[in-house]
Simulated assay, not measured.
Amino acid sequence: MNDVLLDVTNLTVRFPAGRAGPFGPRRHVHAVDGVSFQVRRASTFGIVGQSGSGKSTVALALMRLVGISGGDVTLDGMPLSALRGDALRRARRDFQMVFQDPYASLDPRRRAGALIREPLDLLEIGSPAEREAEVLRLLSQVGLPAEAGRLFPHQFSGGQRQRLCIARALASRPRLVVCDEPVSALDVAVQAQILNLMRRLQRQLGLTYVFISHDLAVVQHLCDEVAVMYLGQVVEQAPTHRLFAAPRHPYTWSLIAAAASHGAAGQAMRRRHLTPGEPPSPIDPPPGCRFSVQCPHVTARCRTEAPHLRPAAEGHLAACHRMEELGVPDFGLAEVA
Results as ranks from 00 to 15, higher is better:
84 R>W: 03
21 G>Y: 10
246 A>G: 02
116 I>D: 07
272 R>L: 14
195 L>D: 07
59 A>C: 08
19 R>W: 03
140 S>H: 15
49 G>L: 01
153 P>W: 10
28 H>M: 01
204 Q>P: 00
287 P>G: 08
60 L>C: 00
79 P>S: 02
266 G>P: 03
143 G>N: 06
183 V>S: 05
43 S>V: 06
226 V>S: 02
116 I>C: 06
192 A>Y: 04
160 Q>E: 13
321 H>K: 04
2 N>R: 09
18 G>K: 02
16 P>Y: 01
334 A>R: 07
82 A>V: 04
166 I>D: 13
105 S>D: 06
95 F>Q: 00
36 S>Y: 04
292 S>P: 03
141 Q>A: 14
272 R>N: 11
175 R>V: 08
276 P>G: 15
165 C>T: 01
187 D>H: 15
298 V>Q: 04
42 A>G: 12
72 D>A: 12
75 L>D: 01
46 G>R: 00
82 A>K: 13
196 N>P: 11
144 L>D: 07
330 D>Y: 11
119 P>M: 09
236 E>Y: 10
258 A>D: 07
168 R>G: 06
56 S>F: 07
217 A>Q: 12
158 G>S: 11
188 V>P: 08
44 T>V: 09
305 E>Y: 01
113 G>K: 04
237 Q>L: 12
266 G>K: 04
287 P>W: 07
229 M>E: 04
322 R>G: 11
110 R>F: 14
82 A>M: 08
298 V>K: 10
148 A>K: 07
115 L>G: 03
246 A>V: 00
151 L>A: 05
263 G>E: 04
330 D>L: 15
205 L>Q: 14
134 E>W: 06
43 S>I: 01
299 T>F: 11
50 Q>P: 00
172 S>V: 12
220 Q>N: 12
215 D>F: 08
95 F>H: 05
104 A>Q: 05
9 T>D: 05
116 I>E: 04
130 E>Y: 06
37 F>G: 01
289 C>N: 02
236 E>W: 10
287 P>S: 13
161 R>S: 09
21 G>E: 07
132 E>T: 13
262 H>K: 14
62 L>N: 02
125 I>G: 06
292 S>A: 15
181 E>D: 11
160 Q>M: 15
37 F>P: 02
296 P>N: 11
157 S>Q: 14
168 R>H: 09
302 C>K: 02
74 T>A: 03
290 R>F: 09
164 L>K: 03
249 H>K: 10
250 P>N: 12
255 L>G: 01
78 M>A: 09
328 V>T: 08
182 P>E: 06
162 Q>T: 10
293 V>T: 15
208 T>N: 13
81 S>D: 04
172 S>E: 13
185 A>S: 15
170 L>Y: 09
191 Q>C: 09
25 P>A: 05
143 G>H: 14
238 A>K: 00
107 D>K: 11
169 A>Q: 07
185 A>H: 12
232 G>D: 10
95 F>S: 01
167 A>F: 08
187 D>K: 14
65 L>R: 13
63 M>P: 05
90 R>G: 07
11 L>D: 02
333 L>E: 13
258 A>P: 01
83 L>Q: 08
7 D>T: 12
277 G>R: 14
83 L>S: 10
51 S>T: 08
193 Q>V: 15
236 E>R: 06
143 G>D: 04
168 R>S: 11
212 I>W: 08
